[in-house]
């Protein structure tokens, strides 16, 4: 998948050759710094990209439908029912002047997954499922009457209302407290396990991704630089960027001296870039890194690295 943004200051090649697969019931984590293209990937999948964006190439096949080239009607039929998304800021993603119960009802009625008479029961059932205490009372509450954690639970309830088979969670716990974060992610884990729903979890927090995901996709400046099973990635990252990212993440009980920053910043995506966009920051770069194409090497089963000189 390739996505470009046309801006006043030139074309931003936000995503280039991004490819990964998500299997049924699997949790895939996408991790990267800001500007790495994590959210753009999610938005492209959901068909809610900014009008300035243009998908220049690629496909995103989901249940036989190419999401990137589907018509609006097709996408609308899929969104909510088969595909759902959780946003970063639950407060702004909820309609402030409708009670949360009504908002969930809207989704249920829209997709007609339950008979009209059963809608209210289903709302309570969903709120119970996302572990909101006192669901009957909460269904009548407005978003502003709830804490951030509660709002995010409502968002999850909305997202899973129609039992989607793929849930895209874009930084679902950023801005929430650690204990709330743990509870929300536990909830997502459990939903994935019980309903067989696949999850794409997007985060900048490597620790969180590591703990929650089966497979990890590491992105840098619009490229997928490494894709591997979570354990393999942590045991031995093969791309220099992944290794650096791990070294710069504060771990439990780590000392400051163990924290190694990554030199440089994400390159300007408007400029002419070398095939490997990490080249300018990489300490292992050699002359042959400038020769296209960027390789995509399988170093172990299910472990792909986009680097000429993997670790």
């Amino acid at each position: 998948m390739c996505v470009e943004f046309r801006t006043r200051h030139g074309v931003v090649r936000a995503l280039e050759e991004v490819r990964f697969i998500v299997r049924r019931g699997e949790t895939v984590g996408i991790v990267g710094e800001s500007g790495s293209g994590k959210s753009v990937t999610a938005y492209a999948l959901m068909g809610i990209l900014d009008p300035a964006a243009r998908v220049t190439d690629g496909r995103a096949v989901f249940g036989g439908l190419d999401l990137l080239h589907a018509s609006r009607q097709e996408l609308e039929a899929y969104r909510g029912r088969e595909l759902a998304m959780i946003f970063q800021s639950p407060r702004t993603a909820l309609n402030p002047i409708r009670t949360v119960g009504r908002q969930i009802e809207d989704v249920l009625l829209r997709h007609q997954t339950v008979p009209r008479a059963k809608v209210r029961d289903r709302v309570i059932e969903l709120l119970t499922l996302v572990q909101i205490p006192d669901p009957e009372r909460r269904a009548r509450a407005y978003p502003f009457e709830m804490s951030g954690g509660m709002c995010q639970r409502v968002m999850i309830a909305l997202a899973i209302a129609a039992s989607p088979s793929l849930l895209v969670a874009d930084e679902p716990t950023t801005g929430l407290d650690v204990t709330t974060q743990a509870a929300i992610l536990d909830l997502l884990d459990e939903l994935a396990r019980t309903t067989g729903m696949a999850t794409v979890l997007i985060s900048h927090d490597l620790g969180l991704i590591a703990e929650r995901c089966d497979r990890i996709v590491v992105m840098h400046a619009g490229h997928v630089v490494e894709e591997a099973p979570a354990r393999a990635m942590f045991a031995g990252p093969r791309h220099p960027y992944t290794a650096r990212l791990l070294a710069s993440t504060p771990r439990v009980g780590a000392k400051l001296a163990e924290l190694v920053p990554i030199p440089g910043g994400v390159p300007d995506l408007r400029a002419e870039l070398p095939p490997c966009r990490y080249r300018a920051r990489c300490e292992r770069a050699v002359a042959e890194c400038d020769e296209p194409p960027l390789p995509r090497t399988q170093v172990a089963p299910g472990h792909l690295v986009a680097c000429r000189r993997p670790l």
Binding site: Q181, L208, A210
Partner: peptide, 23 residues
């Protein structure tokens, strides 16, 4: 204890998490 147990432990295997219930 609850706060510390909620911190993600990267690849460290399963740990006992103390869940806080209630508001």
């Amino acid at each position: 204890r609850a706060l510390l147990s909620a911190v993600p432990a990267d690849g460290g295997g399963p740990r006992s998490r103390i869940c806080l219930t209630g508001e």
